[in-house]
Computed example of a mutant assay.
Amino acid sequence: MFGTFGTPRPPSTPRRFGRTARLVVLAIAVATGGTAIAVNATPSSAAACNGYVGLTFDDGPTGSTSALLSVLRNNGVRATMFNVGQNVQNNRSAAQAQVSAGMWVANHSWNHSHMTSMSQSQMQSDLSQTSSAIQSATGSRPQLFRPPYGETNATLQSVASSLGMRQVTWDVDSQDWNGASVSQIVSNAGRLQAGQVILMHDGLQNTRDAIPQIMSNLTSRNLCPGMISSSTGRAVAPDGSTPPTGGTTTPPPSGGNCTATATTPNVWGDRYNTSVTVSGASNWSVVVAVTAPQRITTTWNGTASLDSSGTVLTMRSNGSGSTFGLTTMFNGNSSARAQIRSCTTG
């Protein structure tokens, strides 16, 4: 993400697989292009995932990419590599190795410039050149784009979309670019929740050393590394399916009998709408949360109560039916989406 590991813009703020017995490789299509690859899996991997997170590594490929891939393979991790086009052109074999290791490859600009200072035509040329270099090296054309430094605007998002890519930033910043220790990186990664994405970097020893502990902690919470959906920007299962839990649908709590399901029908450059449908009860209360610095600004079809941070909404039925909605401002975090915390009756 940070080509020279400079100070970024403030951030828009899995179940560990065994190292021993591995099954016969399973053919899984890479989401960024449909290329068939071989992936190792343990017998328990599929059943133990109650949610997925997106582990991402920026600024590759580097001279240390092979070392990073080795650590990821040894820990059963598939991750998304946001590659710099110039680096891909200069190290095609490393980009190919990423795909061969089961990673998803994405666009991180040509040379990590401040893209919001570019004209629309310059943005178009930069991202197109990068995607072409990645496709030439790997056979897969990127479906995801991460803006350098997390700096973006409506024009850049529109250009990325015109090239068939969804912009993805991050929910959690590991701070590895900022000299974070192994323990600090592990601690930061501990904030990951199902569906969320973490920012890390290729080429850093502390990051590689943190991966086994990150995976161990995720395993303890029944979270697994997944792919980032090009439709939602959220982490989903490696085959592209939505998480069994922790995703857009929250099952009723113990003793309850209502379920709330969230969808995102509208996304604009600065905000998005969430539609929530409740089933199983006519008198309900639903808690919805967004990821700071996002803020909920508007609600409809319910009695709303918003906390002081503007990120946690409690919506109660008011006779307007079983579907309510809310508008959330991105405020620099365009990848996160509203998550349902609970649905209770009465």
Rank of each mutant, 00 (worst) to 15 (best):
H114C: 07
A97G: 00
Q96T: 03
S136I: 00
M115Y: 08
R166W: 07
S121R: 06
S174H: 07
N178M: 13
Q167D: 04
Q175W: 10
Q167V: 13
H112A: 09
M115H: 06
H108I: 03
P148S: 12
G139Q: 06
S100E: 01
S113D: 06
A97W: 01
T116V: 14
G179E: 10
G150S: 15
H112S: 10
S162P: 00
M115N: 04
S109R: 08
D176Q: 07
Q124E: 14
Q96L: 13
A101I: 00
A133E: 10
N178A: 15
M165C: 06
S162H: 01
V99F: 05
T130K: 08
Q143S: 11
W177P: 06
D126N: 15
M123A: 09
S136D: 11
Q96G: 08
A160D: 05
L127A: 14
T155K: 01
H112L: 07
S140D: 04
A154N: 05
N178R: 09
A95Q: 05
S174P: 03
V168T: 03
Q167H: 09
R141H: 11
W170D: 01
D173H: 12
D173Y: 14
S174V: 06
A97K: 00
V99I: 14
N111V: 12
L127E: 07
S161G: 10
T169D: 11
Y149D: 02
A97L: 04
Q124K: 01
T116I: 12
N107H: 08
Q122L: 08
T152C: 09
L144W: 04
V172Q: 15
M103H: 00
T169C: 13
R166M: 12
T155N: 02
Q122V: 14
Q120S: 06
M123E: 09
Q98M: 14
Q98C: 11
V159C: 05
L127D: 06
S128M: 15
E151G: 08
S113Y: 13
M165F: 08
S128Q: 15
T116Y: 01
A101V: 00
D126R: 09
D126I: 13
S162G: 09
D126V: 11
N178L: 15
V105K: 02
D171L: 12
R146F: 11
W170S: 01
S109H: 07
D176F: 11
M165T: 05
S136V: 00
A137N: 06
Q143G: 07
V105A: 05
S121Y: 02
M103E: 03
M123P: 02
V159E: 00
S140V: 15
S161V: 03
S174L: 10
G179M: 15
P142K: 12
G139H: 10
M115R: 03
N107T: 04
S132V: 06
S125R: 13
Q135Y: 08
Q135N: 11
A95M: 08
A97H: 00
S181R: 09
V168F: 07
N107W: 07
L144S: 04
Q135L: 08
G150F: 15
Q120A: 09
T130M: 14
R166Q: 13
A95F: 08
D126K: 12
M103P: 00
S119N: 03
S125Y: 07
D176S: 13
Q135H: 11
A180G: 03
S121G: 05
S128E: 14
V99Q: 03
I134Y: 11
P148E: 02
